[in-house]
């Protein structure tokens, strides 16, 4: 059970990078064009899930291990919270966009709205990483009937 046929594998090899890049693009330009952290995170998770479906679990886990994905989840939450706390530290208002007030950028450029791209990156990690982890755990679940005739779950994942 090492992945799908050669057709699926070839197509995946061509499109995986484009899906990944599109996710990053949607995340980074979320304040200028349609998109944002939510869409970008789900698209990034989709690119890794495509790898899992086409090549098997081991290949995807060699690209992004479960431990890294769990750390990325926490990093996303910390980026979001710490950025919000900077506003509280400077002006005593939680979620205050002080960077925009102090150094306003040019409108319609990539640097134009202070902390909002940073929030978008945090949300992207926060949404994408746990979805990938959930899919891997769901895909790794196998059911076996033991000697007493009861069903039990077997996780093929190695415990850290």
């Amino acid at each position: 059970m090492k992945g799908m046929t050669i057709i699926v594998k070839t197509i995946t090899r061509w499109v995986k990078l484009f899906i990944f890049l599109f996710g990053i693009y949607v995340t980074l330009t979320g304040h200028l064009s349609p998109g944002g952290g939510f869409a970008g995170g789900v698209i990034l998770a989709c690119s890794f899930i495509l790898l899992t479906l086409a090549y098997g679990k081991e290949y995807a886990l060699s690209r992004l291990s479960l431990k890294t994905a769990k750390s990325l989840d926490s990093i996303g939450a910390l980026i979001f919270l710490l950025t919000a706390l900077i506003g509280m530290w400077v002006t005593n208002v939680f979620f205050d966009n002080v960077l925009q007030k102090l150094f306003p950028g040019t409108d319609f450029m990539l640097y134009s709205s202070g902390f909002i791209p940073l929030y978008n990156i945090g949300i992207c990690l926060k949404v994408g990483a746990p979805l990938f982890v959930t899919f891997i755990v769901m895909a790794a679940m196998r059911i076996r009937i033991n000697d007493k005739g009861e069903r039990e779950i077997i996780q093929e994942e190695e415990e850290e």
Partner: peptide
Amino acid sequence: ETGSANIITAVILD
């Protein structure tokens, strides 16, 4: 006020 051209992003993040 926010510098974000996408008003929806401005609403959800600011």
